[in-house]
Amino acid sequence: MIPLVNKDSTTGHIRIEHLGVRFGRNSSAVEAVSDVSMEVMPGEFVSVIGPSGCGKSTLLNVVAGFVQPSVGTATVDGKNTDKPGADRGMVFQQYSLFPWLTVRKNVEFGLKQQGMDGSHRQQAARTLLGLAGLLAFENHYPEQLSGGMKQRVGIVRALATSPQVLLMDEPFGALDAQTRVVMQQILTNMWQRFRISVLFITHDIDESIFLSDRVYVMTSRPGLIKAEITIPLPRPRTPDMASTPEYLAIKHHLRKLISEESLKAMGGELKDGGLGGFTIEVGPHGVTELI
């Protein structure tokens, strides 16, 4: 009942093949995602990174079942993701806790939908909250929590139904830098404990390196996969790793890829001096501020 043990690592296989999403019709249609193929293996942590508006959230929403693909397919363990369901837990960028439910009742919500009876529900929710260090706040309303705590409850709530995959849409985007680092470590712990597949959307390069096994870089409009990078850093990862040559090399590489895309998204071209005839050089400390 209570998903505390490592699940078998054969479920949670996300597969996206030649996926395209167009919004609108005919000539006014906007192509948000174009011919994206990617995969998240069971138990793997995969990030998608790219400039704002590159369609990375659309990609996630297809897997969640909120957006229907115009072409191609998205499947989780061979099943089409045509509507949302509890097999795919989701953590949103905005705080999405139900303000009228206490922390514990929020966590119980998914279990209630599965028909679990009250006492089992409560027991499961309390165990999970204990793991996340939130048991003391089980009877608080979300309004009484800090941003980091709300998002921790959001993760616990998404995990409560023992989903095959966890979909996260820039979940730490609204948090301050310190809280974000702590949250990344908590998330890593939870992920290792539950051995769940994670598809993580972010625009933060450090975040994607610190958390992921693999990172996909998306181009801006139409969003397609520009590069796929494996992060070979050993686990457990610590913030100290950020100063190792290995880490810096990956970061430099990612930053370069994304800087090009951000520039392009703003109307500039790198090679032909599209910004009013000036040539833009992208160095390690170059145009990253534009991200």
Partner: peptide
């Protein structure tokens, strides 16, 4: 808030 409805659907609410 639309995100609450989406959260509900993701958690398996009919």
């Amino acid at each position: 808030d639309a995100v609450l409805v989406r959260a509900g659907r993701c958690l398996g609410a009919n």
